[in-house]
Every structure is written in C-alpha cells, then in structure tokens.
Write a protein that binds this DNA or RNA. Sequence first.
RNA 1: GUGGUGUUGGUGUAGCAUGGCCUAUCAUCGGGCGUUUGGGACGCCUGGACCCAGGUUCAAAUCCUGGACACCACGCCA
Length: 483
Amino acid sequence: MSKKQQLAISVKKEDNINEWYTEVIQKADLIEYTDVSGCIIFKPNSYQVWESIQRFFDEKIKHSGVRNAYFPLFIPEKLLNKEADHVDGFSAEVAWVTQGGNSELKERLAIRPTSETIIGNAYSKWINSYRDLPMRLNQWCNVVRWEFKHPTPFLRNREFLWQEGHSAFATKEEAEAEVLEILEYYSQVGEELLAIPIDKGKKSIGEKFAGADFTTTIESYVAEAGKAIQAGTSHMLGQNFAKAFDIEYLDKDQKKQFPYQTSWGISTRLIGAMIMMHSDNNGLVLPPKVAHNKVVLLPMYFKGKEDVVNNELDSIMLKLQKFGALVDDNKKEQIGFKINKWEMQGIPLQIEVGPRDVEQGVVTFNVRDLNEKFQVKLEDLEVRVEQELENMQKRLLERARDKIKEVTVEVSNFEEFEKAIKEGKRCLVPWAESTQSEDEIKEKTGAKTSCIPFSHKEKSLEGVNCFYSGKPATCYVYFCKSF
RNA sequence: GUGGUGUUGGUGUAGCAUGGCCUAUCAUCGGGCGUUUGGGACGCCUGGACCCAGGUUCAAAUCCUGGACACCACGCCA
C-alpha cells in the first residue's frame, strides 16, 4: 500500500458512509477506542468542538437565568423506580454498581442514564413555596446508557457527555414557554455554530421521552446516509415527576400545588452529526466557528530564500493570532504532505507563504471546503481571513440545506412512501397519528417518525387523509430511517 | 441479541493452509544527521509488534476452546 493510500481516506463518503466515517474519526485524530466497548477517548481535536458547544449554549442559558449545578453520578434504585413510565423506558439500558470495595451494596446504585429522578428528589426538598419558583438548573456531565451492542463513536456511545437542564415552574404556560425557548437555543447551536440544518418539531407519542407529556426535538438529516439524526430534545414533563417525587409547594392562596417541570439535553452526539454533515473525502471539515485553530500557515522554504519567507511570517502570525493561527514549519515534511494533513484535520483556512508570494506582497489562501486557491494582498489579510471564514460558515449550512432539500419528498400514499424510503429519502406525509401505525410502518419499511415539524403546523389538513391508514390526517410528519 | 469479517511495532501490512530455519516481512512512523519543499521527497544511522486467558505439542504468530475489542448487515433503543 502506498503512503498516500495509507494516510488518506480509502473509502468515499458516497460509496460507504459508515466506513468513511470510521476512517475520518480516526485519521482526523478525533478519538481513540478503549477496552470498553462504546467508551471512547475524546481527543483534543474532538473535545474542542464540545467546548465550543458548551461556551455557546452555556452563555445562552445563563443569560436566560438558568444556573449550573452538579448532581451525583449514582442513583439509588428506589429513586429510579419512582416514575413508572420512566423506569419502563430506561430499565433496559441502565448500568448498575452492586459492590463497594469488597462488600456488596445493600441497595444497588444506577449509573445515571439521565437525572430526572435524582433531581426530582432534590427538588422535593427545595421547592416548598411559590417563592422558590421558578427553579432552573442545568448540569454538564456524563451519562451511561448500556443497551446497545454496536456503538458508533459520538452518535451512539455507551458513555457520553451532555448537558441536562431541569426546571420547575408554577404554571404550565411558563413551563411550555421554556421548552420552546430552549429548543430555539438548540436550533441555534445547530445552525449558527455547527452549520447543521435543523428542523424543529414535536416527537410522536411513540417516540417521546419516557415520563414526559410531550417532547420537542431538533432534527437533522444526513443525505448521504439516508438517515435522520436527533440532535437534541426539550421535554415537557408536566406534573408527572412532581407527583412521583412529592414536589409540592404552597401557592399564594395557601393551597398545595404541584409544579410543572421540563428537562432538556444536547450531547456529544452533535459532534457526530457535524462530522457526518460536512466532512468529505479529504477528511474532517470543521465549521470555522468551532475550530479552535481556524488558520494554519504553511511557509514554503526554497533554498536561499528562507529569510524572505521567515521575515514576513512573524508579522503575519501576529495579525492572525486572534484566529488561533498555527504555523507548520516542519522542514521534514513536504508541502503537499502538510496540506493534506491539515485538510484531514479540518482546519478551515490554509495560508501558504512562499517567496513568490512575498515578492508580490500576497499570500495564497486555500479554504477547506473549496477546490481552489487564490491570492490575497497582505494589506487585506485580516479582513479577508475574517471574510473567508464567515463565508465558509454560511456556505456549509447552505450546502447542507440544499442536500437535505434534494432528498426530502412529499408523498401521499404508502406505495410512493415505500419506494422513497428504499431510495434513502426523507418523506413528509400527512398522518393520522397512532403508535400502532408507526410500529407497523417501521416493521414494513424500517422508517419511523423523525418529528412533526413546526414549520408545517399552519398547513391546512382539511380533507387531507393519512398516507397510511386513509383516515383524516392529524398532522404532517417526517418519516425516515435514523441513526 | 443474530449473522458475517477481522485483530501482528504509532499506522498499513507479509507470514498462518502444511506448527520448527520467525530473536517475524515490507512500507510508513518516531529519534539523529544531511540534502530538499508551490499538492503525499531522498540518502545514511537508529527505535518499535504477534489482542487476552487457558489448552494441545518436544516446539505456537500459526492449531483448539473461551473472552475482549473493532468493522459491516440486521435487531433493540433516546
């Protein structure tokens, strides 16, 4: 095998996206596998993306009045069992600690798959008066879900990182407003930061969170894979957990009330969605806003002209510090090798600085997602860097949107539907919502609902029948395969 | 959970059928030194591996059993 084949990605995204993904995450130095299936090392190249997401989202919720806290990793079994639907939904995937040191524990401890229960238990102590409301806490932490056998890094880990927000309000209206407020922030994380096109919507009854009244979601779609990615969820818990955990308070009229609760989360799965969405056959593509190092400078050393380049390099570096510019001046690697290496790692902008450039007072730009190089005058350097990064950020989102548009179809009968799903399409259909029909459709085609998009809320359903049952439709919904 | 494939230096691999000449091939890689650099350079020196646990055998990278991990196709699932 040649050097080139070995270091480059050997499978094309359009030919086999699963193998392509496996190669990208390893060759871009994003992860390391470990001895525990489904538990990966997030190497600095991927962890930096998570840090960007944290900074972006944390600022939004703090501004909105949410505060961060931290709750324990272990949940006593009796707490986990308090809300019946919740237990049913999670019991199959909980990891347990049964032993401490050499002695067996009297009550086994769940490693949190999510923290509604332990937080509900705390809230029952903390919420006693209407003055204690609203209570809005968030935590950044890890969770463990053990049910699957074939993990996919980022998209389906056994242990993953996320944030989980948990709020309690006096009124249903306030709680529902927060559910949507958070969903809007999630959508911004997707579209503004990661350049991932987002559909906001509601989960079907069959797909909602275990124990919630309803679940809202941000959904995206990977055209090349023909699969949806659920990128984040914001749940209206109603009073279900409040009743199960005895969270009661006295209102202004001295009457006992249960608060209305919400919970919401986004996870490191977003990193997987970002990779799937933008990366190409040359490796990772990082949206500029999440790239810690947005620029890499590649000096070209020609015999006898090293000084010409080096003299310019320092001043360029100074101007580009704010973009986290790196310099790759390793003389053992040929320039072509370096170009490919940094493309593989997804650095948004490469700037070549060679004697030919310097003599003309220019540098050569190589933007990660374009197939062309162009020269930029040194005096315009900072402005043009800023501009190119901004354009790339926009371009990634638009390009992803176009791709999704291409593979999204509206169909009105089951025959067309089956055909479209086989072709990897995402189908928007009128539907008479029922869990039974969703199960049947999944059985027959492998597709399930992604979401009932808010964008089609206003669209008239008068005289429109369900594509599957023929009954009067109750909503428009996206059906497709999913990760 | 089912079926398939795989695991040999950091990476990609040869060797395995027919156990021994394997203190393991080739390349890349790491460390030196030198010459190079506009899309994967070259020379010399040097460093580094048989997934784990049992078993068979005079002898195991190679055969057997079990396990771990990965990938692919399903199944299940926030």
